[in-house]
Design a protein around this nucleic acid. Structure first.
Lengths: 100, 100
DNA sequence: ATAACATATGATTGATTATTCATATGTTCA
DNA sequence: TGAACATATGAATAATCAATCATATGTTAT
């Protein structure tokens, strides 16, 4: 595209910053990693990560709001999964940089 | 690699979160975009973005600490540039997600 | 209907951080 | 040496936000 190197409009920039902010928290990263192998219920994620159910729920809301995960209800449980493959790619690209 | 889907060690996770945190600020994103077309002096960046020199300097330090930009001194001026192409890729990947 | 379970939400607190102002450091040139 | 310029740094403030606790909502089975 022609203007690849131009600064995007402010509104887009804020959205972009917000997106990266979501990835910029280790708890949310752990949740996303947990979802790498498919959907999981909230309580399972909390157990896996040994964290409060409420903490996980709050962070899942952030992930949901930013369209990084999607939801499915089955009875009492609510299953979360990655919204698209994009998420993995962004994380893996970041990991490449961290691991030099 | 075999354990692509496993949760990385905590230390790596914190580093990864820190990296994304750096991208998670619109001022830093604007600075990085400014550097997409090559090196620029601190004052020039401040002018381009119409922001305080001190603000830019503080944020450049964050970018430098996280190895996203590198520095070169030429006389009184100090020129900053992207540290590697990785930076562009991460941002563009994020932008893809934002732009749907 | 009610008890038991799973998840979500609201309020609070402590910690982190972006910006600003003032000033220090470092460089050039007369 | 000293003035002018470019950048960095430190302190202070305001805003954001993750985790926690307590409680609400919603679902299932008896």
């Amino acid at each position: 595209m022609a203007d690849k190197n131009n600064i995007p409009e402010m509104e887009v920039l804020f959205e972009l910053a917000d997106l990266f902010k979501v990835f910029g928290d280790s708890t949310r990263l752990r949740i996303l990693y947990t979802l790498f192998d498919g959907e999981h219920a909230v309580g399972d994620i909390a157990d896996t990560l040994s964290m409060e159910q409420s903490t996980i729920s709050h962070q899942l809301r952030v992930l949901r709001t930013n369209k990084l995960v999607k939801v499915r209800r089955d009875g009492k449980q609510i299953y979360y999964s990655l919204d698209d493959e994009h998420v993995k790619k962004v994380i893996e690209m970041g990991l490449d940089h961290v691991l030099e």
